[in-house]
Amino acid sequence: MARRGRIPLSERVYRSLQRDLAEGVLIPTERLGEERLAEIYGVSRTPVREALARLQSDGLIERHPDGLYPYRPRLDELADLYELRILLESHGIHRQRTGDGAATAPLTRVHDAATVGGELEIWLHLRSCPPHPGAELIAADERFHSRLLAASGNAALTDALETVYARVRPVRALDMPTPDRIATMTTDHIAIAEQLLAGDLDKAMNTLVTHITTSRDHVLGRAGHALRLTKLARALRD
């Protein structure tokens, strides 16, 4: 019997693979062979096989004719995912204005101030101690947006946003923002939180949409570059 609190081996491999996919440690153009991964993580092929099955179900890896590879969405799919993200997060603000989402309903709720205020404090701190590019920054950014959407009171919206993040995250991991871009992200997050707490929903909406659109443009540009490299690598391999 496994000890209480002990993480199963397949779960540990799953988390390690998930992390390495997000951080770009595993090269997108290299096949995810069970034998090679078992050697990398120091385990047998069975937990690797189980972890790969879960990751494929999550949509983080995909099967090609010659095997499994890290998932990389098409450019048109990325654009669609960012459009969905804008719709979801904008609706989180919109429903504060209408109460229950209906245009004629009176305002009956506001964003949960404790949640928004907590994120504001985090990003005020990060303004003084900026995070390094990589998985930590991506996680902090996703947490900010997910918690703000959750603060609008609709858990289904937050679940949908998490699905979008899972699909976009592998490409975001390829995009290493400069210190200037990290500073802009931080400034935007602080502004959005302050505007929500002040009840200025129009400003919050405008800041949010501009912020996500800028992120989309950077990610699409980086994805286009990665796609060209992938096609070149496959052409050379074939």
Rank of each mutant, 00 (worst) to 15 (best):
R4Y: 11
G5L: 06
G5R: 06
G5V: 00
I7T: 15
I7E: 15
P8S: 05
L9D: 00
L9H: 03
Y14L: 07
Y14W: 06
Y14I: 00
R15F: 09
R15G: 05
S16F: 05
S16T: 10
S16C: 13
L17K: 01
Q18K: 11
Q18W: 13
R19W: 12
D20N: 14
L21N: 00
L26Y: 08
L26Q: 00
I27Y: 12
I27W: 13
T29I: 00
T29F: 10
T29N: 05
E30A: 09
E30C: 04
R31F: 07
G33T: 07
E35T: 13
R36S: 15
L37D: 06
Y41T: 02
G42I: 01
G42F: 13
V43S: 08
S44I: 04
S44V: 04
P47L: 02
V48N: 02
V48P: 07
R49L: 13
A51M: 04
L52A: 07
A53H: 12
A53V: 08
A53C: 03
R54Y: 08
R54A: 09
R54L: 10
Q56C: 10
Q56M: 12
S57Q: 15
I61N: 03
E62H: 11
E62F: 14
H64K: 12
P65F: 12
D66M: 05
Y69G: 04
Y69A: 04
P70R: 02
P70N: 01
Y71D: 03
Y71G: 00
Y71E: 01
R72Q: 12
R72T: 08
